[in-house]
Design a protein around this nucleic acid. Structure first.
Length: 372
RNA sequence: GGAGGUGUGGCCGAGUGGACAAUGGCAGCAGACUGUAAAUCUGCCGGGCUUCGCCCUACCGAGGUUCGAAUCCUCGCGCCUCCA
């Protein structure tokens, strides 16, 4: 095993940990910015590094379509290719089973997509997905899973989970036979059914992955249901392995999940919302395109010391965003990711010092809707 | 000076007798976004009201034809093109 995870402290169910990978160390709980196509939209690798991101995501489905795994491999692997020297986790394409449901067909062998780029058929199997991620040289590889829609009848969720587990087993065997430089994570499914989630935990932990992800959330289910699923599932996972909640979420979601014992997060929200002129701030959500900010000289977040907040006003940033100026999106993305990464830093500090409950109480009011 | 064309809601621009308070786009206002087919999408966008409907005012201005006019006619005004 080339990943090493250690628990430095716990605070209730919450954990302060450290995950070591071939490309560096990740202090957890950690947020992993999403760079689907190899880059976080709007950020240079250098900017992402300056913001303090310790790991980023990329997506195997998208990279397989363009530029192709062999291209990246021939250029020295993912890190050499995209200029990011810290750890990288690749998602397997399992999320696209859900998000591109209309363009794919599930078979016993795997999943076949009708490429959204050129319409070509592309098949992903548990084995090919593991092989591709090994060839990319990623630090954390994810198994191919089936992310079912929500809501789904329990029988379907169970059948879907069976397939995901079967795929996980094949992936695990392939990885054992031909391991990559990093680790391989299993992914739990089971929709919102505790019974299925428990089954997922039991069956997958038996396969001894390097870490475990809670998948199948943030697919349209109500917030309360999502949180119940997380709170129920996280404690079922091995204490000494990293736990990753896929695709989550808002700062409030992350806070809740950390309290439930989750270590790793990724979400497109900070980057996408930035591009859509919605900023996360210590005072709540800031809809920068609202008319009231046209003449607001304050920095986006007065409590933030990111490069954006140090230099530009709400008025100027609102102007750029309103005009569709790409720099506005860049500045907003810098801030939102800085906010997320800073938020994770505070969570780590609080979990290490046993003050997470206080932090949560304070954050609950700060993170809610914006001031009047 | 002559000939032709044109004038539509903040802007651009469809509409050439009834189905028109008037297609679209932009701008504006508000909202959504959770392992990214997303710099995207949705709603509102003349005024008023008891708002799945009703009333008022509206397609440069004035007048006319008609049961009925943004649409046809006359005059005026503005703009454009060509000729002198």
């Amino acid at each position: 095993m080339t990943l090493s995870f250690s628990l430095l402290a716990t605070d209730g169910a919450a954990r302060r940990g450290r995950l070591e990978t071939p490309h560096g160390t990740i202090e957890t709980p950690a947020f992993m910015p999403v760079g689907t196509l190899g880059a976080v939209k709007g950020l240079t690798p250098d900017a992402l590094e300056s913001l303090g991101a310790s790991i980023m995501l990329a997506n195997l489905y998208h990279l397989t379509l363009r530029p192709g795994i062999e291209v990246i491999e021939s250029l020295g692997g993912l890190h050499a290719w995209n200029g990011w020297s810290r750890p990288i986790l690749t998602d397997s394409g399992g999320f696209q089973v859900w998000s591109l449901a209309g363009r794919r067909k599930l078979t016993a062998a795997g999943v076949t997509f009708r490429s959204h780029v050129d319409g070509a058929l592309v098949t992903f199997t548990p084995e090919s997905v593991v092989d591709s991620q090994r060839r990319l040289g990623v630090d954390i590889a994810m198994v191919l899973d089936e992310c079912p829609a929500w809501p789904v009848p329990e029988e379907e969720a169970a059948a879907s989970l069976d397939r995901t587990v079967a795929w996980a087993r094949r992936a695990r065997e392939r990885w054992a036979a031909a391991p990559g430089p990093g680790g391989l994570f299993g992914i739990l499914q089971g929709s919102s059914f505790p019974c299925q989630r428990a089954r997922a935990a039991e069956l997958l932990t038996a396969l001894d992955f390097d870490g475990y992800a809670i998948g199948g959330v943030s697919v349209g289910e109500p917030e309360a249901e999502r949180r119940e699923t997380v709170a129920f599932t996280a404690p079922l996972l091995p204490a000494l392995k990293p736990r990753y909640l896929m695709g989550v979420g808002t700062p409030q979601d992350i806070l809740h999940a950390v309290l439930s014992g989750v270590d790793l997060f990724d979400c497109v929200l900070p980057a996408r919302n930035a591009r859509h002129s919605l900023l996360f701030t210590s005072e709540g959500l800031l809809r920068l395109k609202n008319a009231r900010y046209r003449t607001d000289p304050a920095p986006p977040d007065p409590a933030c010391s990111c490069p954006t907040c140090r230099r530009v006003s709400r008025a100027f940033l609102a102007h750029l965003l309103r005009c569709g100026e790409i720099t506005g999106q860049v500045l907003a993305t810098v801030h939102n990711l800085a906010f997320y990464l800073d938020f994770m830093g505070r969570l780590r500090q609080a979990s290490a010092s046993g003050t997470l409950a206080e932090f949560a109480a304070r954050a609950a009011t700060q993170l809610s809707e914006p001031p009047a």
